[in-house]
Write a protein that binds this DNA or RNA. Structure first.
Lengths: 177, 177
DNA sequence: TCTAGATTGACAGTATACTTACAATATGGG
DNA sequence: CCCATATTGTAAGTATACTGTCAATCTAGA
């Protein structure tokens, strides 16, 4: 078979079918994300918390006094998006924002009492949701899928616009407000 | 082991850690979706099409004269969301909307000439994007992951708010405008 | 046939998720 | 010490993705 170097070899155009969409990884990831959010919201409806708001609460619980920029790195959200999330959590009185003494630009984040209560109480519902997402698969397949997904997300970390930087969470420890 | 019936057995509360978030399927699906969109947009930047707009174009190409409600079932989007997507595709002149003669409520969707051209030309970029998403895995693992994901999305179809109804696409065939 | 109920597209509202831009503030090199 | 540069939070703009609701229209049962 002849093989040109330089520009990529023009291959036969693939047929444009819905099947090509349905079997594409990108489509499957989007679908699975839709399904996951739907299940989460349903299981946690009593708490009026979205998946993102839940993740933010956990991170603030784990890193009290973290600032918004570091929080965005720890849960891999965009900084701008996170601003709105924080606003909503504050308006629900689940978190508190206090200005830092050391850096006038920074607002440090803490769980409120009611935030800590909600977080503690929502855990069983969150776990139920996570189980339900994988429920249709055989237990061995669940493990396989989780393992491969974990690998893939880790290896593709830099490909996303907001890479996860879990280690950033430690940097606020010297900056108590 | 004692076992109460009625309410679920209260199990030991799990520790609240970021690791619990990072290993949860819901988190991995969200991350993977972020990464997939980022790769798609990067590879297809020359065409100024989002993944959703691309899927809509393919579906309209495959089912010319489909209406918005049926389109939403075929690509598993919410009907309201799809309205905006259609508007944008129309404003870019990639599709055309024509009122149906048989049903005054319905607007039928068709690819424009430039829509067909864009769709044909974008295919190689889309394929490159789909490959890149799974690139970090060994080929055998890519197959395994895709297989499990396909199963899971299919078995969880009804759990999402907007289940896929691929067969709905056929119903417009009697309704030519 | 006539009307109760369903469907269709549109709109408003909420919540991610990203982009770029900006002012206030911090920091480090010269 | 001072200024170029970087960081922080915020805001405006775009695009999903869902919830409702609504009016126009269609359809089917009594």
């Amino acid at each position: 078979m002849p093989h040109r170097t330089g520009s990529p070899m023009p291959s036969k155009p693939s047929p444009i079918t819905m099947d090509a969409v349905y079997t594409a990884p990108g489509y499957l990831f989007r679908r699975m994300q839709q399904i996951a959010v739907s299940i989460f919201v349903e299981e946690c409806s009593a708490f009026d918390l979205t998946p993102v708001q839940y993740a933010a609460l956990v991170a603030i619980h784990t890193h009290p006094g973290i600032d918004a920029t570091r929080l965005s790195a720890v849960i891999a959200f965009d900084r701008s998006t996170l601003g709105n999330v924080i606003e909503r959590l504050e308006s629900k009185a689940l978190i508190e924002r206090k200005p830092s003494r050391e850096d006038k630009r920074v607002k440090l984040l803490y769980l409120s009492k009611s935030g800590a209560t909600v977080l503690r109480d929502i855990m069983p519902s969150v776990e139920r949701a996570q189980l339900r997402m994988l429920q249709p698969l055989k237990p061995a397949d669940r493990k396989t899928l989780l393992g491969l997904l974990t690998q893939l997300v880790d290896l593709n970390n830099e490909a996303s616009r907001v890479p996860l930087r879990a280690e950033d969470a430690l940097e606020h420890l010297g900056k108590a407000g």
